[in-house]
């Protein structure tokens, strides 16, 4: 690896940490200074003021904000996200097992998303305006505009209510191994794929169309190179890089999309935990989950930027010039 590339990568990594820090400050400040008192919200509007005060003290909410922030971030770095307000249990204890479920859900979706979108997008581009293209493109223009809960609801009605192939809810049992409950993940994964796949396929198709009509592709063809070789060695490599960002964006969207999807299927993950915590105004839990999801989001973006840099021959061979 050469120096300019290393520098660029390091800059990106530093920037990612700066962003993460900025986000944690913004989120923390938002939960501290925006109108609305979490302690009062937790105890209800009619609660005794002294009880509210006691709760505030118990959770350290009477200390200065800067102190609170640093003690929070210190704990977060060691996995201690404080205690959940309504239950008083440590936050991590409640969300730890759920995080595993969410991981399984999102990673499975992502692993299906990438190869599927390339195959479908490139096929649609090659057969532009023909039947195969319509069969791929028309559904994408529909699903790209659908919220997760609509797709999820439709899937439940179809597969659980009418066909009765799969259960309408995905109540994962913590005490059983996940592998024995894999069928519970099918509909949630399909739901997440529904929205993200459409976007990535459309992007791949658009990029592939551009590449296919590029002059160098004609030149390669006119050298008598076989279509399969043209596709794998010339079209595909030039389609991947511009698409990475869209894939990253959608991978990140998966991180947010789990909130709704998990609620639809009542799947116990950190997404549904977040929406419950928001409704209960359980700030320590909201902060913890937000930090985890945002960190994932920033990490995914970082990985995609690094990939784009690494795949670019211009930077790979750069000899120090711009």
């Amino acid at each position: 690896m050469n120096k300019p590339l290393l520098q660029l990568l390091l800059t990106r990594i530093v920037l990612a940490f700066v962003t993460l820090f900025a986000v944690s400050v913004v989120v923390f400040t938002a939960t501290q200074y925006l109108p609305g008192d979490p302690a009062r919200a937790a105890l209800g509007a009619k609660a005794d003021p002294s009880a509210v005060e006691a709760l505030r003290r118990e959770f350290g909410m009477d200390r200065p904000a800067v102190v609170q922030y640093f003690s929070w971030i210190e704990g977060a770095l060691t996995g201690d996200f404080g205690r959940s307000i309504p239950s008083g249990r440590p936050v991590w204890e409640a969300i730890g097992p759920r995080a595993v479920n969410t991981m399984v859900l999102t990673v499975t979706s992502l692993l299906l998303l990438i190869p599927l979108s390339f195959v479908l997008g490139i096929v649609a581009a090659i057969y532009k305006d023909r039947l195969a293209d319509h069969l791929i493109s028309v559904p994408t223009i529909v699903t790209v505009a659908l919220p997760e809960f609509v797709i999820g609801t439709v899937l439940i009605v179809l597969f659980a209510v009418y066909l009765r192939w799969l259960p309408p809810v995905s109540l994962i049992n913590d005490s059983l191994p996940l592998s024995s409950q894999s069928s519970l993940f099918i509909l949630p994964v399909l739901t997440l794929l529904g929205t993200t796949l459409a976007q990535v396929v459309r992007m791949v198709r658009a990029v592939a169309l551009e590449v296919l009509s590029a002059e160098y592709i004609y030149m390669v063809r006119l050298r008598g190179i076989s279509p399969a070789r043209v596709l794998i060695w010339h079209v595909l490599p030039n389609t991947i890089t511009p698409t990475i960002q869209t894939i990253a964006l959608n991978a990140a969207w998966l991180a947010g999309g789990v909130v709704v999807t998990e609620s639809v299927f009542q799947l116990p993950g950190i997404g549904s935990a977040l929406s419950d915590a928001v409704i209960n105004r359980d700030m320590p839990t909201v902060l913890a989950i937000t930090l985890i999801i945002t960190a994932t989001y920033v990490l995914i973006n970082l990985v995609s930027e690094a990939l784009i840099l690494l795949l670019n021959p211009r930077l790979r061979v750069a000899s120090g010039k711009n």
Binding site: A214, E215, Y216, W233, H234, P237, N238, P313
Partner: peptide, 10 residues
């Protein structure tokens, strides 16, 4: 146009 006639990543 020679600059646009070669596959850029090979």
């Amino acid at each position: 146009n020679p600059t646009t006639s070669f596959s850029p990543r090979m």
